[in-house]
C-alpha cells in the first residue's frame, strides 16, 4: 500500500537536494500537449521521456515539461530540446520507442538523432 508517509520521506530526501538543483537543471525537454499533440500520441511520448530521464538518473540536470500547441500540428507529437549554449533541437512525429532512443543517444550520449528531427522531414 502506498501511504502519505512515503511522500513525507520523499520530502525529507529532497530537502537536501533542492539547493543544488535550482542552478544545475540546464536541459529542458518540452513536449507539445495541445489537442493536436494529445491526439497524435504525445502522452506516451511524455511518459517515455520522464521515465527515461528518471531511470538514467538525470532528473537533476534535465527537466521534462509540457507546453501547448507549437504550431506545426501535422508533425505532432513534437518535442523540443533546449540545451544551454546549443541551438534548439525539434523532434517530430515521435512515439514512445523513438523517445527512448532520444533519451539514450541525445540526452545521455550528447548526439542529436538527426533522422527524427524536423530537418529530416523537410528535405
Amino acid at each position: 500500500m502506498k501511504t502519505l508517509a512515503e511522500l513525507a520521506a520523499i520530502r525529507e530526501k529532497m530537502q537536501n537536494k533542492v539547493v543544488i538543483r535550482e542552478g544545475s537543471a540546464s536541459t529542458r525537454v518540452v513536449v507539445g500537449m495541445a489537442t493536436c499533440g494529445i491526439a497524435a500520441g504525445a502522452r506516451p511520448v511524455l511518459n517515455a521521456f520522464v521515465e527515461g530521464v528518471v531511470s538514467a538518473n538525470l532528473s537533476d540536470k534535465i527537466t521534462v515539461t509540457q507546453t501547448g500547441c507549437i504550431g506545426i500540428c501535422q508533425y505532432e507529437p513534437v518535442v523540443e530540446i533546449y540545451e544551454e549554449g546549443k541551438e534548439k533541437v525539434t523532434y517530430v512525429k515521435l512515439d514512445a520507442a523513438k523517445a527512448a532512443e532520444i533519451v539514450e543517444k541525445h540526452l545521455k550520449g550528447g548526439k542529436v538523432v538527426e533522422e527524427y528531427t524536423i530537418g529530416a522531414y523537410n528535405n
Binding site: 502506498k2 502519505l4 508517509a5 512515503e6 511522500l7 513525507a8 520523499i10 520530502r11 529532497m14 530537502q15 533542492v18 520522464v50 530521464v53 528518471v54 532528473s59 521534462v64
Partner: peptide, 17 residues
C-alpha cells in the same frame, strides 16, 4: 500537506508515487 511547500508535485518521484 505531506510534501510541504519545498517539494513540487511535478517531481518525477512524486509522479511515480
Amino acid at each position: 500537506a505531506a510534501l510541504g511547500n519545498e517539494v513540487s508535485l511535478a517531481e518525477p518521484e512524486v509522479g511515480m508515487w
